[in-house]
Computed example of a mutant assay.
Amino acid sequence: MSAMSTAASTSVFGDLMNAHQTVASNTPATVAAAKFADYLEEKQSAGKLPSVAPGRSPTPDQLAKVLFGTAYDPDTKTVRLEKLAAEVQKGTAEFAGQFKQRLTAFGVAANMPVELSTGVDGRIIVDNSHPKAAEIAKIFADDPVLAQAYRNIAAQNDQLTLMQAGAAYVKDWNAAKTDGERTALWNRYSTLMNKMTSMFSGRITFGPSTVVAESQQMLRRMGLS
């Protein structure tokens, strides 16, 4: 897989992403699935939004401690995700090319969309609407390297989406004039962000010429993009 650089992963995603990416590419599928389940538990814990007293809202500094890493500038209280977003997009496109080549090698035509997602056991799930779903699922079952590459890129897209939602909150927080406005903002954003994380499933659709991450679509549907 061509994932984002180790430096970027360390500086922005921190221990959360490192725990995910340390699953060796040649690990047997059963062990990889178990480690991925552990990662999901860590992700839920690490991505937890900060607790605040009723009628209060977390400051950008407080939210940065659990979400932004070095993407947050404490001096300007702004979040810069452009570089990270570009790296995730690049990694996703590179995986899409690799996946397309693998489909072609196994005699599966790449002229119709393939929807992939990750199960709680780390298994790569292929949407049954594809006529070759069973064959595609077998490709991943037989190739732990490819399966792990997908888990990585799917998790990066989901985490980026959560960070982008948090960045939108920080922008609105900075523009708010009163504590009451900031509390109302937190009530809205925390509800949306919790809903988003509960719906994350690492789903990405690979079309003949497009790649669509469901988490990014979710961001747009919630009016946060």
Rank of each mutant, 00 (worst) to 15 (best):
V52T: 05
P54M: 07
G55D: 00
G55I: 00
R56Y: 08
R56Q: 15
S57I: 10
S57R: 08
P60Y: 15
F68S: 07
F68Y: 11
G69W: 01
G69A: 02
T70P: 09
A71D: 08
Y72P: 09
Y72H: 09
D73A: 09
D73N: 15
P74T: 13
D75V: 09
K77G: 07
T78E: 12
V79N: 07
R80I: 07
R80C: 09
E82H: 12
A85P: 02
A85N: 02
A85Y: 02
Q89K: 15
G91R: 08
T92L: 01
T92E: 00
T92H: 02
A93D: 05
A93F: 02
A93V: 02
F95P: 02
Q98D: 12
F99V: 10
R102Y: 09
L103G: 00
A105G: 00
A105K: 01
F106Y: 15
G107V: 01
G107D: 01
V108D: 02
V108A: 02
V108G: 00
A109I: 05
N111W: 04
M112Q: 10
M112G: 06
V114G: 10
V114W: 07
E115P: 05
T118G: 06
D121T: 04
D121R: 02
R123D: 14
I124G: 03
I124Y: 03
I125Y: 11
N128L: 14
S129A: 12
P131I: 07
K132F: 13
A133P: 08
E135K: 13
I136S: 02
K138L: 15
F140H: 11
D143V: 07
V145M: 13
A149F: 11
Y150M: 04
Y150Q: 05
N152L: 11
A154L: 05
Q156R: 06
N157M: 02
L160F: 01
L162E: 14
L162Q: 15
A168K: 13
Y169M: 04
K171G: 10
